[in-house]
Nucleic acid binder design. Sequence first.
DNA 1: AATATTAATTGTCTTTTTGACAATTAATAT
DNA 2: ATATTAATTGTCAAAAAGACAATTAATATT
Lengths: 232, 232
Amino acid sequence: MIEYSRQPHYLVAVDCIVFGFDGEHLKILLVKRGLEPEINKWSLMGGFVGPDESPDDAANRVLKKMTGLEGVYLEQMQIYGEPHRDPIERTLSVGYFALIDIHKYEAQLNDDYEAEWFLINERPKLIFDHNQMVADARKKLRYKAALHPILFEMLPKKFTIPQLHILFEEVNDTKIDTRNFSRKITSTGLLIKLPEKDKTGSKKGAFYFKLDKKKYHANSQAFLNLVPNLKV
Amino acid sequence: MIEYSRQPHYLVAVDCIVFGFDGEHLKILLVKRGLEPEINKWSLMGGFVGPDESPDDAANRVLKKMTGLEGVYLEQMQIYGEPHRDPIERTLSVGYFALIDIHKYEAQLNDDYEAEWFLINERPKLIFDHNQMVADARKKLRYKAALHPILFEMLPKKFTIPQLHILFEEVNDTKIDTRNFSRKITSTGLLIKLPEKDKTGSKKGAFYFKLDKKKYHANSQAFLNLVPNLKV
DNA sequence: AATATTAATTGTCTTTTTGACAATTAATAT
DNA sequence: ATATTAATTGTCAAAAAGACAATTAATATT
């Protein structure tokens, strides 16, 4: 108590890199910052950690406030704590990445923010160290997705193998052979084939699949190896 | 600036889980806490993040102060930020795990702390959420070590295959076939065989190896798969 | 000096997984 | 009836993994 009070105190924030997939491309959700400094510049969605919440709580709160979504896949990435990363006052920020089904997202009418999806490779420059955060998040997403079946979080409940295929190619920025991909993904036993087809993409149509949630949750730690010649 | 000042400020600390290997068992280094509350209880080594340093800097500083070692393998784990994890005042802590060569460690004569090595499975109860941190660190060490060649950091410059073998078994808490292990570890191309032998362990003696540092640094991201039937 | 002892080192075979390849199929459009 | 388009599926060779125990190099013992 005596010692503690002599120590410096800092602001603690969270920043979320929100990934989404529109069926063709990997995207991230950015907002126009609602407070000074750098007001109206593009940034990650974030906020300060309140007195009665953990950083995880704060990230979920921010995410809900800005997207309306709850129960989103959210993973702590790392802390950003260079002394002068925020020019106004020392602020440490916990970086999170989130995966959401882009179609579930409905823009919240929030007076403080404007949110917009950007193609991952055509995003504007961001404030502070947010560009670095995005780069780190992308790397981590790639790493994680190569080993764990998390990319399903970005797809609707019913999805097709070609959709999944494109998503994996987007995330890893590489071409993946359809035959080998299909073999691997089905051999995980995580997919359940549905009788319906998605006819929007082709004449033949592609069968819908859904996740076997029991196996997914029991086995979300299982290692996959869906990217050939993986070099993370 | 206006907005910022209304936000609450917190203490930010770092805590380090220091892993070491004595040739037989995996150990962690604990200290007797030097300040109230819980003074003289066993805890992880930690400290507050100073005004001119990042959390990474702070972790390195703490580690040097308590072990005398610099350039230690140190990896950010996650942040611990439950509102009441510290009973005195809200403190967020960034957890790190460190890997050191136990033989390099020389106890620092530090008036504030008593440090001691404990077998990982025979450690005392720790303060606050430090027990959880150790559990998390162990899990992360296991995960990381299955995919990346980081365990070398816990061995002397010259080491033998049997030593490495025991270390992998300790970390993964499993038996690993010597023939398959040897095949895999040598096929990485990371080891250079030395002409000398370590005679301390057996009559025949075991050849020393050293790391091919060029390959190690160029390739420390390379995936290994040294643990059979890996389930992380 | 021969033999016993002890731990290090090495080899083979089978099964599984991977990666590289293109033909076939199911629907709609012409 | 045929053309078109994307989805789906199959084969083979190479590499990796896993299961398994005999051999070797030293010291210790008789």
